[in-house]
């Protein structure tokens, strides 16, 4: 099957044309804290993009194992930003309607910023647990640590400029 050229161009537009200079050296993978769990590796993910393999590049666990630590980006000898590639692929996948617990977490996060201007962790967690009940044990453990120390925000603070924030998200998202 020939590669999806349109997909490749979209990745280049979002993550930078320097991607074309990747030499597949694997420095990014060697730097990555979650490399062990990634399949495809971050190096291979770059290759998949360049080959226009949209399906493989956007449907994998790798995107969601990236912690955004930017070590790959600091180290790449070609000045490529592998983390930006991950972000671009998440974006493309989310636009195409990708569902899943990880995508849902990002969606709820952005929705909260849109609605309140800020993040209220309790409300965010509650929403997330509805789509991923398996996270309940960890949330309980955290709650037991944080609640008695007064570190859970029970009320949601809303900023004044909510309309502006909403506009930022909705307008710039299209660009």
């Amino acid at each position: 099957m020939p590669g999806d050229e349109q997909f490749k161009q979209e990745v280049l537009r979002l993550a930078g044309h320097e991607l074309l200079t990747c030499i597949q050296c694997g420095t990014c993978s060697a730097s990555c804290p979650t490399a062990r769990l990634m399949n495809p590796s971050i190096r291979r993910l770059i290759k998949l993009c360049l080959e226009g393999k949209k399906e493989e590049a956007t449907h994998n666990e790798t995107l969601w194992l990236c912690t955004s630590c930017l070590l790959c980006t600091s180290r790449c000898p070609r000045g490529i930003r592998p983390k930006a590639v991950v972000s671009a692929l998440k974006d493309i996948a989310e636009r195409a309607g990708l569902q899943g617990k990880d995508a849902a977490y990002e969606k709820f996060f952005l929705e909260q910023i849109k609605d309140y201007g800020r993040i209220a962790e309790l409300a965010l967690t509650a929403k997330f647990l509805l789509v991923f009940p398996q996270g309940a044990v960890q949330s309980m453990q955290m709650g037991l640590e944080l609640l008695p120390r007064g570190k859970i925000d029970l009320k949601i603070e809303k900023i004044k400029g909510r309309d502006e924030v909403k506009k930022i998200i909705e307008e710039l998202w299209k660009k």
Partner: peptide, 23 residues
């Protein structure tokens, strides 16, 4: 005076993240 969330590591769209920080 009226700061908003920076998006942390969960806003993958770079331009949106830039806009939130710029505000």
């Amino acid at each position: 005076p009226d700061w908003n969330c920076c998006g942390a590591t969960h806003v993958s769209h770079e331009l949106v993240a830039t806009g939130l920080a710029a505000r």
